[in-house]
Design a protein around this nucleic acid. Structure first.
Length: 234
DNA sequence: GTCCAGGGCCGTT
DNA sequence: AACGGCCATGGA
């Protein structure tokens, strides 16, 4: 029998456990900290084709300058912002991108992420994708990890794993996303779907980095028994 | 030194 | 629709 997204999730959950990516601390007010949802939004853009360790450096720079908030980035001098986020790479485009989005949150939503996220998922997604520099994956990462919305994020790793296992799905972003969501939503309650989608995406990233690499490292792979890919032919 | 990272845009075919 | 070049730092 072939692998389904649900079975994939169950296997990875057993082997890798919960990864708790970008957990949103809802008591951040009491700790006098900045809104963690905004940090997730900025992180989602800074991590485009970039290792997370580099993104962390850029986020630390923003924090130590007290610039990790909507107003500071919206009103920042673009050249200065570029310098601050330099370690994240592609700094010219990324500075522009985080400023464009921050200005939208400032001008149209009055700095209020509740106003921004408390709408239909598809409407928010369309608005995000209409911003130059925010594509489908970045938009969905923001919706899932910052907006707490049940939407499955598809990345290059997901596509690679679908090809290798294989998982029987089409190749376009939206088709792959629907393939995962249709299957998982049949097997899990609505109220935990956001959690399931968030964990599975994170688990797939770990799987692809540690085992299902470009040059595959199948020894000790959690999916060895369930995978049709033959690394001896590679 | 080489490879690659939790993409997206733009131009060409 | 699909593909190539480009953007750039830092760790393995």
């Amino acid at each position: 029998m072939s692998l389904s997204p649900t079975l994939l999730y169950q296997i990875l959950l057993k082997k890798l456990g919960n990864l708790y990516w970008w957990p949103i601390d809802k008591n951040y007010h009491k700790k006098n900290k900045s809104d963690p949802r905004f940090e997730v939004i900025i992180g989602a853009i800074l991590t485009q084709n970039t290792s997370w360790s580099n993104v962390e450096k850029a986020l630390e720079n923003l924090k130590s300058d007290r610039k990790l908030n909507i107003k500071s980035i919206a009103d920042a001098n673009l050249k200065n912002l570029t310098k601050i986020i330099k370690p994240s790479g592609f700094f010219n485009q990324k500075a522009q991108r985080i400023q464009t989005l921050s200005k939208l949150l400032k001008d149209k939503y009055n700095y209020n992420l509740y106003n921004f996220f408390n709408r239909d998922i598809k409407i928010i997604r369309k608005e995000l994708v209409s911003i130059k520099g925010i594509g489908l994956e970045t938009a969905d990462s923001i919706l899932l990890y910052a907006g707490d919305k049940p939407i499955f994020v598809v990345d290059a790793y997901t596509k690679r794993i679908c090809n290798r296992l294989p998982l029987d799905t089409e190749t376009s972003y939206d088709e792959i996303q629907l393939f995962f969501e249709n299957d998982l939503s049949k097997n899990y309650e609505d109220k935990i779907l956001t959690k399931v989608y968030g964990e599975l995406h994170a688990q797939i990233v770990i799987l692809a980095k540690d085992y299902c690499r470009k040059k595959p490292n199948c020894t000790d792979c959690p999916l060895l028994k369930d995978c049709m890919f033959d690394d001896k032919l590679f």
